[in-house]
Amino acid sequence: MISSLVLALTLSQYTPQEAQALFVEANDFYYKGDYANAQSRYEKLLAAGLGGPDVLFNLGTSHLAAGQLGPAVLFLERAARVSDDDDIGANLAVARERQQDQVIGAEATSVPFNQRVAAAIDERAVAIGFLVTWWLGFVLVWLTWRREGGRVVPGLIAALLILVGAALGGALWMTANVKATVEEAIVMPDVARVREFPGDAAKVSFEVHAGLKVRIMETSGRYARVRLPNALEGWTEKEGLVSL
């Protein structure tokens, strides 16, 4: 993490002090009610590779204060993906409360197991845990392989380590699979029409509004098939969606 931050600071046009000053300046604009200027400064930091949960949280909150639900949810969701801070969840809750769409029946539609696992785990910690247990288990197997007698206890420990490693590896595989196959996006325009099939002539099934999180199932030309949390589906224009 430190090395990547050093690399980012090297490549960006800001020194750490300048970056921090820009961050504080953006906060000042926020408190003066000048949300546009605050946002432009947070975005400069993001563009320079100086992101992180704090910048994303402030940018999302700034959009939320300005009444721009689409980008507010987008940046707060992105912040939530890299931090489990309570404040992010609180402001996301405010944003969802202001969001115009009420997805009925979303609670009844359970999230698939693999997605829940992917959402729950810390990929980095699990990856490191997998490597450590997996290797330890096999090293123990190798040490007890040629041992004459007294191999029961080491054998059991090795088996346990390999079992845990396999479980962690499985969770990791599930997470990678979810990331590769499940794409979520936020609706940006105030109103986006969702049609029965891709095409301007298609009948409008329903409308969604800024800030709604949807899952992109597939794309076709200018359109993307989106699925709501309650499994309601339809086609809407891709340019109105920004991936998380």
Binding site: M1, S4, L5, L7, A8, L9, P16, A19, Q20, F23, V24, N27, Y30, L45, G49, L50, G51, G52, P53, D54, V55, F57, N58, T61, S62, L64, A65, V82, D87, A90, N91, V94, E123, R124, A127, I128, L131, L172, T175, A176, K179
Partner: peptide, 24 residues
Amino acid sequence: GLKSLRHTARFATPRPALSTQPWF
């Protein structure tokens, strides 16, 4: 209401997942 802003930032560069590294 809204939670107040962060007053200092810990900057972090988005990192690729460990499991996607070629050596993993």
